[in-house]
C-alpha cells in the first residue's frame, strides 16, 4: 500500500499513466466493443443494434447473437472476399519486395552523401496524399487514359485495353502506394550490414551472387519481415485502392466491410467481419510487433 502511494507521488508513474490510459481507452477498449457489437442483433434504431446486456427486475440478461458469424459462414461472398484480400495482399507484397529490395540495396550501397537524398526521393511521395496518388493512376490506366492513348497513337492497338477497374490496376496501385514502406525498413537493415563480411566471403572465393545469396540476404531477414508486414497487413484491409482502381472481379474484405457498414447499415455484421479480419491478421501483427519492439528497445 505504501509503495503504491509512493509510486503515485513520482513523475514516472504519471508519465507512464498518461499515454497508457489514452491507448487503453482509444485503442484497446474499442476492440472489446467491436467484439461485443459483433454478437448483438441488428435493429432499426439509433444506434442500429440491440444492447447485449440488459438489466431489469434484478435480472441481468446477456443476449449473445452468434447469428452474425454463422451468416458470414453461410454466404460464400464473405469467404471469397477474405480469400481475395489475402491472395491480393500476398502477391502484392512479393511484387513490392522484388522491386523494393534492389532499390533499398542500391541506396544502402550508394556513397554516404547521396544516401539521404535518395532516401528523401523515395519517401517524398508517401508524404504527399495517398488518395491523390491512387487517383493519378485512374487517369493513366483508363480506356481514354495516357497509356491507351499512347499505344493507339503509335498504332499498336486499335481498341483500348481495359486496365482500369481490373485486378491488374489494383496490383499497380498497391505496389505504387506501399513501395516506400517496404524500402525504408530494408534500407535501415542493409545499411547496417558489416561490409567486412562480404569482403571475407569474396576472399574465401565466393562470387558476388553467392556472397549476396548466402551472406547479405540471410542477414537482411529482419528487414524483409518488417517491410513485408508493413505492406501485407494494411493491404488485407485496404479500401481506397480496390474502390477506385478495382472492378467487378475485385473482391476484397475492406470494401465489403465498408458496404455493410455504410450501405446496409448492418453494424453487427460489419463488426463480425472486423473481428474475423483481426483473427486472420493476428499472426502477421505479432511477427511485426516482435521486430518493431526489438528495434524500439535495442539501445546502443
Amino acid at each position: 500500500m505504501i509503495s503504491l502511494i509512493r509510486q503515485l507521488m513520482t513523475g514516472r508513474f504519471w508519465l507512464i499513466a498518461a499515454p497508457y490510459t489514452w491507448l487503453l481507452l482509444f485503442f484497446a477498449l474499442p476492440f472489446a466493443i467491436v467484439l461485443m457489437i459483433s454478437v448483438s442483433t441488428a435493429a432499426f434504431s439509433v444506434p442500429p443494434y440491440e444492447a447485449v446486456f440488459s438489466y431489469a427486475d434484478q435480472q441481468l440478461k446477456i443476449l449473445l447473437n452468434l447469428g452474425n458469424y454463422s451468416f458470414l459462414l453461410d454466404d460464400p461472398l464473405y469467404y471469397l472476399a477474405y480469400w481475395g484480400s489475402i491472395k491480393m495482399a500476398f502477391f502484392a507484397t512479393i511484387l513490392t519486395l522484388l522491386l523494393g529490395y534492389p532499390m533499398a540495396y542500391a541506396i544502402a550501397q550508394a556513397p554516404q552523401k547521396n544516401q539521404t537524398v535518395l532516401l528523401l526521393l523515395v519517401m517524398l511521395p508517401s508524404w504527399t496524399s495517398f488518395l491523390i496518388r491512387i487517383y493519378a493512376w485512374m487517369g493513366i490506366l483508363s480506356n481514354e487514359g495516357v497509356i491507351n492513348g499512347l499505344l493507339q497513337a503509335m498504332g499498336l492497338i486499335d481498341e483500348p485495353i481495359q486496365m482500369l477497374n481490373t485486378n491488374f490496376a489494383v496490383y499497380v496501385g498497391i505496389v505504387y502506394a506501399y513501395l516506400p514502406f517496404m524500402i525504408l525498413p530494408l534500407y535501415a537493415n542493409l545499411v547496417k550490414l558489416d561490409s567486412t563480411l562480404l569482403e571475407a566471403a569474396s576472399d574465401l572465393g565466393a562470387r558476388r551472387f553467392t556472397a549476396f545469396w548466402r551472406v547479405t540476404l540471410p542477414l537482411s531477414k529482419n528487414g524483409i519481415i518488417a517491410g513485408s508486414m508493413l505492406v501485407f497487413i494494411p493491404v488485407v484491409g485496404e479500401f481506397v485502392i480496390p474502390e477506385l482502381l478495382g472492378g467487378p472481379d475485385t473482391l476484397m474484405i475492406g470494401t465489403v466491410l465498408w458496404a455493410e457498414f455504410f450501405g446496409n447499415r448492418d453494424w453487427p455484421v460489419a463488426s463480425a467481419l472486423a473481428i474475423i479480419m483481426l483473427v486472420i491478421l493476428l499472426i502477421p501483427i505479432m511477427l511485426f510487433h516482435r521486430y518493431q519492439s526489438k528495434s524500439l528497445e535495442a539501445s546502443s
Binding site: I16, P19, Y20, L23, L24, F26, F27, A28, L29, P30, F31, I33, V34, I37, P47, M229, L230, I233, P234, V236, G237, E238, F239, G254, L257, W258, F261, W267, A270, S271, A274, M277, L278, L281, P284, I285, F288, H289, Q292, S293, L296, E297
Partner: peptide, 30 residues
Amino acid sequence: GRTLFTGMITAPLVMPDVIIGLSLLLLFVQ
C-alpha cells in the same frame, strides 16, 4: 504492463484503417 504498452504503440502502424475507424466509431456511440 510493458508488453501491452509496446503492443498498443506498434499495432496502429499496420492496423487496417477500416478496423481502427469502425472500432473507434463504436466506442464513441457506446
